[in-house]
């Protein structure tokens, strides 16, 4: 047995010095934990890494066995993803190649297309798909967080007849597997003219997200003592003014976390987007998937599409990361 005097801190532990800063054993433990976490993170990132490098591989490198880690990067995948091309044949192709070699100025995308014997006719509609995704995910997030915020406030603060039942009912919409409502929803949307419209998709994702936002935000608002608003009421403000001036700033963390969660849901949603949109309002996830079908599998184009698809999520998560961390660990610590 070793006593604390032998293993314990060499210097006096004063306030503000953490145990692991002075106790070697605690420090070792902390390092081991950090290494484990880093390894887990790396394992989790392998698919993302594979996708990232695939996006910059040429057609031949993509299918090489074993997979190449070192290769000549090319923008081929992005050209395939972002442009609409047609195959050139015989004389036209020879002519075009001759022109290019003859020093006719053409863009980098055209040059890459030409190497594959193709000519660029114009931008592909993937850009439109991304734009649709942004509009629909953004719109439904804004709506579901706003509506959820007011509903959560009311549930948290007011006496509402049948409050518990209502809350359970809201939650129960989550218990239903989405495929169950797929067909009726499809028929309903066609009847109502909501099929393949931005509004229809925004409405749908808002409804799906509401249960999450109401419950999440209610948790955050419950944690804010009522005395703050009551002080504002007494100080000469209406309930709504008190809500915006006092409650909202304190709920910022919760709102940020909820925003990220509902944005990611709407952004990633695949099944309903595939079924309820065809062209006008089609979002990126089904569009990426249908690329599989057309004229062989363009792995690099798919990887490029997925990479482009990830960027907004990374951006939002990064922008709100400070709030998010507290939002995710929220409730884990009792104060």
């Amino acid at each position: 047995m070793t006593s604390f005097a032998e293993t314990g801190p060499r210097t006096a532990v004063t306030e503000g010095i953490r145990v692991d800063k002075v106790n070697p054993r605690a420090r070792l433990l902390k390092n081991i934990r950090a290494v484990v976490v880093i390894i887990l993170a790396l394992v989790g990132l392998i698919p993302v890494f594979a996708m990232g490098i695939t996006a910059f591989k040429s057609r031949a490198d993509v299918v090489a066995v074993p997979p190449k880690l070192l290769f000549e990067p090319t923008l081929e995948g992005f050209v395939f993803l972002l442009t609409d091309r047609s195959q050139l044949r015989g004389t036209t192709l020879a002519e075009a190649q001759e022109n290019a070699e003859g020093g006719e100025p053409i863009g980098i995308f055209d040059r890459i297309a030409l190497q594959n014997g193709q000519r660029i006719n114009g931008p592909s509609d993937f850009i439109l798909r991304l734009r649709n995704s942004l509009i629909i995910a953004g719109g439904s997030t804004l709506l579901s967080v706003t509506l959820g915020l007011f509903a959560a406030y009311a549930f948290s603060r007011f006496e509402i007849p049948g409050k518990d039942d209502l809350l359970f009912f809201i939650l129960s919409t989550r218990m239903l597997p989405a495929v169950v409502v797929a067909v009726p929803l499809f028929l309903m949307y066609r009847q109502l003219g909501l099929h393949d419209t931005h509004f229809g998709m925004i409405l749908l994702y808002t409804v799906f997200n509401l249960s999450l936002t109401v419950w999440l935000l209610k948790g955050f608002i419950d944690e804010i003592p009522r005395e703050y608003e009551e002080a504002a009421l007494v100080d000469g403000y209406t309930r709504l003014q008190a809500f915006f001036k006092i409650v909202l700033p304190q709920a910022a963390t919760g709102v940020a976390a909820t925003t990220v969660f509902s944005f990611i849901f709407a952004w990633n949603e695949y099944a309903f987007a595939l079924m309820l949109t065809s062209n006008n309002a089609r979002t990126a996830p089904p569009a990426i998937a249908t690329m599989l079908g057309r004229g062989g599998i363009e792995w690099s184009a798919i990887a490029a599409g997925t990479l482009a698809f990830l960027i907004p999520v990374i951006f939002i998560t990064f922008a709100l990361r400070k709030h998010l961390l507290r939002g995710v660990t929220f409730g884990a610590v009792r104060q």
């Binding site: 009551e230 009421l233 007494v234 100080d235 000469g236 209406t238």
Partner: peptide, 8 residues
Amino acid sequence: PADRDVAF
């Protein structure tokens, strides 16, 4: 509450 003009 606002119209009662009390301080709490």
